[in-house]
Design a protein around this nucleic acid. Structure first.
Length: 545
DNA sequence: GTAGGGTTAG
């Protein structure tokens, strides 16, 4: 009935068999729903289940709507229960799958063979081991343990949640071991870093498919073993976008950004098209390299792939790339063009502006963010404090530091404290900076002291510089503590050879050669030299005052 | 209508 009417209105469009295939957006879904409401459910008894299926499973981001529809059904059948569990399990909030299952049980609806793979998927995504074990028990209780799908999902669940012995036992007991659980188990071992076992499983597979290869390649990649990954990559009989993505992400992870870009070139030359995952890795590579040209090309590639809205993830990566490559205007363009934003979006743009010296814009955006009730996190405040520091806004900076602690209950970390020392120090409030460090609840690190020392240098405060230097020196002694300790042990045993070896080790490893170390161990004259080193910037600062 | 692989930043 529905189909007929719809086709009447659009006779030229290709005919499709079901509603859930036809609906590709929330809007289409609502239209279908409205149609059914107007014409009565009797006109098409299966219409509602199809709409729910579309909302829960087929279209992403419409699970809420499916929940609303579901709430109006007085007696859902198993298909509808399962559909809702399935959709929830794959949604951003898999916990709903569990609660729907509970409701199903409360209403004495018996789960069937379709139910368990879905709830187990939810447990896997939640890493909810206890709950998963509970469902494992129910599988046995309902007599589903020999169902291939359920068994394979159980293996996947246990392998994914680190219960490899259970996964292994289930696998070993299986009458027929097909490639799906075989790969799942391999992935489980690889994820835990047990590449030897993973590789053995991989080698023993009677049949391998693309996923098996990808699992093994990804295993190597995740452990940073790019050479082994590359060897397999060269041998793999067939590659898909996941294979390429694994390699590209691997190179980025290892900091081999150039190689990642080369890999992408190669990917294009064999006609494999990138997807959003490819682009995410590549943007990260460009950001790291500061390669704006490459970044812009990747951006163009992205526009070819996804017409319409950018995902938050991609938008954030773009902002970050443009900001790190020095094109803050483009970063802002992306920011303005984003419909949905999360806290990371704001962080990227606030931090980007701050690090490029656009302090006012950065702080303005922070104010706007708060107005829009987006809750800042600790990273937001690093950006804000950097902005204040660059702009010399001491009181504002102090205010935000307190706001972070008092209103948002965020404990200052070492970076926030470093920013505060920088802020006070740059502004010439050296005594306050010193007091700030002393009042810190966390242990100051060498960077904090060096920041203060740098500020003392700028403002020519010898006395405080000497004190900061002493503290830095203590710090360095601590850092080389292990060596000194060992060296002393050798000495106390009269093993002078060992002492010599340790000294050599200390020299070789750079413990005594770190930048600034010579200064720190040096006498006052060297300290003075450092402080009054006639660098142009220093001269101009003095003459401006 | 059911199971396995890849995801930014700080």
């Amino acid at each position: 009935m529905i189909r007929k009417r719809t086709n009447d209105r659009s006779a030229n469009r290709p005919q499709r068999s079901t509603i859930w295939q036809k609906c590709t957006s929330l809007r289409a879904l609502k239209e279908a729903h409205a149609f059914v409401l107007v014409n009565g459910f009797n006109s098409n008894p299966s219409a509602l289940r199809e709409i729910i299926f579309a909302g829960a499973v087929t279209i992403s981001g419409t699970i809420e709507y499916a929940h609303q529809l579901f709430a109006h059904i007085t007696e859902p059948d198993n298909f509808i229960w399962n559909t809702m569990i399935r959709g929830s399990a794959q949604s951003p909030d898999p916990l709903n799958a569990i609660s729907i299952y509970k409701r199903m049980e409360d209403r004495h609806v018996k789960p069937d063979n379709f139910t368990f793979p879905f709830v187990l998927k939810a447990c896997t995504r939640l890493s909810w081991v206890k709950m998963g074990f509970g469902f494992h028990g129910k599988v046995v209780k309902y007599g589903f343990q020999s169902n291939t799908f359920i068994r394979n999902t159980l293996i996947y669940f246990h392998a994914n949640c680190g219960e490899l012995s259970v996964a292994r036992a289930l696998f070993d007991e299986s009458a027929k071991r097909d490639v799906v659980p075989w790969s799942a188990l391999t992935a489980g071992y690889a994820r835990r870093g047990e590449l030897g076992i993973a590789r053995q499983l991989f080698d023993e597979m009677p049949v391998r498919d693309l996923v098996s290869w990808n699992v093994m390649i990804t295993g190597y990649v995740k452990q940073g073993e790019m050479e082994s990954a590359r060897k397999l990559f060269n041998k793999v009989p067939k590659r898909d976008v996941v294979t390429w993505n694994a390699m590209i992400a691997g190179y980025v992870l290892c900091g081999l950004n150039e190689q990642a870009l080369e890999m992408f070139e190669e990917m294009g030359s064999v006609g494999e098209r990138p997807d959003e995952v490819t682009i995410l890795s590549l943007l990260s590579a460009c950001a790291d390299l500061g390669n704006l040209d490459a970044g812009q090309k990747i951006h163009c590639n992205l526009l070819e792939i996804c017409s319409g809205d950018l995902s938050i993830l991609l938008g954030n990566a773009l902002i970050d790339m443009y900001a790190k490559c020095g094109n803050i205007e483009r970063a802002l363009d992306v920011f303005r063009g984003m419909r949905d934003r999360d806290v990371s979006t704001w962080n990227s743009v606030i931090g980007g502006l701050a690090f490029h010296g656009h302090a006012k814009e950065s702080i303005d955006l922070f104010i706007k963010m708060r107005r829009l009730k987006v809750r800042p996190n600790e990273i937001t405040f690093v950006g804000v404090l950097v902005a204040c520091s660059h702009a010399g806004k001491v009181e504002e900076g102090r205010g935000y530091f307190n706001l972070m602690k008092n209103e948002y209950k965020i404990e200052p970390n070492i970076r926030h404290c470093g920013c505060m020392v920088d802020l006070l120090g740059r502004a010439g409030q050296l005594k306050e900076a010193f007091e700030f460090i002393d009042s810190m609840e966390i242990e100051p690190n060498a960077i904090v002291w060096r920041t203060l020392l740098g500020a003392c240098r700028i403002h020519g405060n010898v006395e405080l510089a000497r004190r900061a230097n002493e503290r830095l020196l203590e710090m360095r002694r601590d850092q080389s503590g292990d060596y000194v300790l060992l060296s002393n042990i050798y000495a106390s045993r009269g093993e002078w050879d060992g002492v010599e070896k340790m000294r050599k080790l200390m020299d070789d490893s750079g413990v005594r050669k770190e930048p600034g170390f010579s200064l720190i161990e040096a006498d006052d004259r060297a300290l003075m030299q450092f402080l009054f080193d006639s660098k142009p910037q220093w001269k101009s600062r003095i003459s401006n005052r």
